[in-house]
Design a protein around this nucleic acid. Structure first.
Lengths: 220, 220
DNA sequence: TGGTGTGAAGTGGTTCACAGCA
DNA sequence: TGCTGTGAACCACTTCACACCA
């Protein structure tokens, strides 16, 4: 994000990837734009139009797509429906992954209520927290369990992705448990660098850092 | 994240910048690590130790610092206090910028409660919302004003940075108003590409996108 | 010896220029 | 003619190799 996209060094995923990480990133953006076009009843779109909606250059879009094949018709453009299907396939977002949330504090609770995840096809199965006051409650239909039940839940439900929104102090410890239990992807909101084995990928979003980053460009 | 780092094309800021954008980004990380070292009473640190804490390679850290001068002592390392001061100066985070929040919904409210901003030295001066039910209330000590008062407030208080957490549909419109009023940096949480003049910088954090990005690496 | 500072080489990603096809 | 597909040139950033010095 952001780069922060780059705050996580992304420890060389095992994926057979000649494909740039940033391309993958942009695929999600394209997908969202295509969705909107579909809703508006468009059935074809040119690289120029789609790239503009996505905020990139046309050549970039075309180059991105060539990593996966040829989908356009010269002189015409891309079939919206077909392209959207293809991207879904590549991203694996048609095979819906279960996700858990760890840390049901301020930020965690907001993430539960945030319906952007659901809109993109993700569903948070359960939340976990160490605070006894929160355990046993339900937030927006999602049950909050004790942190001690987390590992068992992950193993039982074969959860592969987790959202981490715990204080910086406990982030690494919780992270270790998640990895141990079999989680392969972590979306980390704690302001810390997480150490993970190379087969696990961490995507960090550090809110304060993003704001600080801005302030550099604004002074003066 | 971040990477998203790259979702905002960062439209070539006017800044006299030979300095890589990613370097600026990492300065914030170094700063946070230095803070922690200071609290622990360390007064010098080597590039090896600091870079490890920040999750980067030692050469990277040293290279980053050379963009601004020479701060280390060969054979010894860096003075924690002095380096921290220097980075603060570069980032402009010692000249505290006022910030406003637009959109006091789920995510917006959580951001108000999130004390990571304050910890890094930012203070949200006021919040704005279009929903009459929210206007006039106070969240965590921050007053929620009517959206219609936003432009005047920005002008009067010379606000240069804003956090945008409104629905995608209204994001561009609100963005335009902010720019019109003089805001130069926007931290955008709305899932949309914002069009801004080249003297304004947008840093987008798209939560759903970050999660989708992860899912690509996790399948299988 | 144990560290920093830095030109030079390497890498990854973007953009260009243009060939090729409906 | 209009728009896609793509090798080649380009650019930005990272990493290396090593000079230098407390």
């Amino acid at each position: 994000m952001a780069e922060l996209c780059e705050i996580s060094p992304v420890s060389k995923a095992k994926k057979t990837t000649q494909i740039p990480r940033k391309t993958i990133y942009r695929l999600s953006i394209y997908q969202r734009c295509l969705q909107r076009l579909k809703e508006n009843g468009m059935d074809t779109v040119s690289s120029g139009a789609l790239s503009k909606a996505a905020g990139v250059k046309p050549t970039q879009l075309r180059k991105d797509l060539t990593y996966f094949g040829q989908f356009g018709t010269r002189g015409l453009g891309y079939n919206v429906e077909a392209l959207s299907e293809t991207i879904s396939g590549v991203l694996g977002s048609n095979a819906l992954q279960p996700v858990i949330l760890v840390g049901a504090g301020n930020l965690g609770s907001a993430l539960l209520r945030y319906n952007g995840f659901r809109k993109e096809g993700f569903e948070i199965k359960a939340a976990f927290d160490a605070d006894a006051q929160r355990i046993g409650t339900t937030k927006v239909g999602v049950p909050v369990h004790a942190a001690s039940d987390m590992v068992a839940f992950v193993k039982k439900n074969k959860v592969r992705m987790a959202i981490l929104a715990v204080p910086a102090e406990s982030a690494q410890e919780v992270c270790n448990q998640l990895v141990e239990a079999g989680v392969q992807g972590i979306l980390n909101f704690s302001p810390t660098v997480l150490n993970v084995p190379s087969n696990v990928i961490v995507n960090s979003v550090d809110l304060a850092l993003e704001l600080e980053h801005l302030s550099f460009f604004v002074q003066g």
